[in-house]
Amino acid sequence: MQKYPMTVEGENALQVELKELKTVQRPAVIKDIALAREHGDLKENAEYHAAREQQGFIEGRIQDIEGKLSTSQIIDVKTIPYTGKVFFGTTVTIINLDTDATVTYRIVGDDEADIKKSRISISSPIARALIGKEEGDVVVVRVPAGDVEYEIDNVEHI
């Protein structure tokens, strides 16, 4: 079975969500279903159907998280010696050589990626181009609009 990389923070976030689903949301929806059943005819009971639908979402998310955790390889970046190179878990500041725009990303696992938080997936084209490079290196990233050149300005091992 293939293992997928995940940071310690990503694992912790999934564990917290899983605990919330199992200990708070699942019992609450079971209670809602029981309460809706008391109202009589289930065929026309909107509360019952809504609660059952919510239960389906919760159970699906629980299975999804458990599956992700079972196939993940937790990588604690703090235990890896800093070499100055870009690798999983590092934070990289890059400069677009065409526009001089500067952007900072942290390279994380697929399930942790969130562009709003400046976290990109290890399997993204930018991350794949950056892996193994050092400060000052120029990388070319293939995007649908063509090739874009970036210079690595800073690599942080956090």
Score class of each variant (00 low, 15 high):
residue 136 G to A: 09
residue 134 E to Q: 08
residue 51 A to C: 10
residue 90 T to C: 08
residue 90 T to S: 05
residue 71 T to M: 15
residue 103 V to L: 12
residue 49 H to S: 03
residue 59 E to W: 09
residue 59 E to L: 15
residue 121 S to D: 06
residue 52 R to A: 14
residue 64 D to I: 10
residue 80 I to Y: 08
residue 93 T to N: 01
residue 84 G to T: 03
residue 128 R to T: 14
residue 47 E to N: 07
residue 117 K to Q: 09
residue 84 G to M: 03
residue 115 I to L: 04
residue 103 V to P: 01
residue 79 T to C: 02
residue 88 F to T: 05
residue 113 A to S: 04
residue 77 V to S: 11
residue 68 K to A: 03
residue 87 F to S: 06
residue 50 A to N: 11
residue 73 Q to E: 15
residue 120 I to S: 01
residue 69 L to Q: 06
residue 126 I to V: 13
residue 83 T to A: 10
residue 81 P to W: 15
residue 137 D to W: 15
residue 102 T to R: 08
residue 66 E to R: 04
residue 92 V to P: 10
residue 50 A to Y: 14
residue 120 I to Q: 01
residue 135 E to D: 01
residue 64 D to R: 05
residue 79 T to G: 07
residue 113 A to N: 03
residue 118 S to H: 13
residue 123 S to Y: 15
residue 66 E to L: 06
residue 56 G to E: 10
residue 115 I to V: 12
residue 68 K to D: 11
residue 133 K to F: 14
residue 87 F to G: 05
residue 135 E to H: 02
residue 138 V to M: 04
residue 115 I to D: 04
residue 111 D to V: 07
residue 137 D to P: 02
residue 49 H to C: 06
residue 101 A to E: 15
residue 49 H to M: 09
residue 101 A to D: 14
residue 74 I to Q: 00
residue 137 D to M: 08
residue 109 G to S: 12
residue 136 G to D: 13
residue 109 G to W: 12
residue 127 A to R: 12
residue 71 T to S: 09
residue 59 E to F: 08
residue 89 G to S: 00
residue 71 T to P: 00
residue 77 V to K: 11
residue 84 G to D: 09
residue 75 I to Y: 00
residue 131 I to A: 00
residue 96 N to C: 06
residue 122 I to M: 07
residue 113 A to M: 05
residue 89 G to E: 05
residue 83 T to S: 12
residue 98 D to A: 03
residue 122 I to K: 04
residue 131 I to R: 01
residue 70 S to R: 12
residue 98 D to P: 00
residue 87 F to K: 08
residue 88 F to P: 04
residue 67 G to N: 14
residue 118 S to Y: 14
residue 76 D to G: 01
residue 100 D to G: 00
residue 122 I to A: 05
residue 117 K to R: 02
residue 61 R to V: 06
residue 65 I to C: 05
residue 94 I to R: 01
residue 56 G to S: 13
residue 65 I to Y: 01
residue 56 G to Q: 12
residue 102 T to I: 15
residue 111 D to F: 14
residue 109 G to T: 14
residue 91 T to L: 11
residue 134 E to A: 01
residue 100 D to N: 11
residue 114 D to E: 11
residue 60 G to E: 03
residue 101 A to L: 10
residue 47 E to L: 12
residue 135 E to F: 08
residue 122 I to G: 00
residue 132 G to Q: 10
residue 77 V to F: 06
residue 61 R to Q: 11
residue 129 A to K: 09
residue 64 D to C: 02
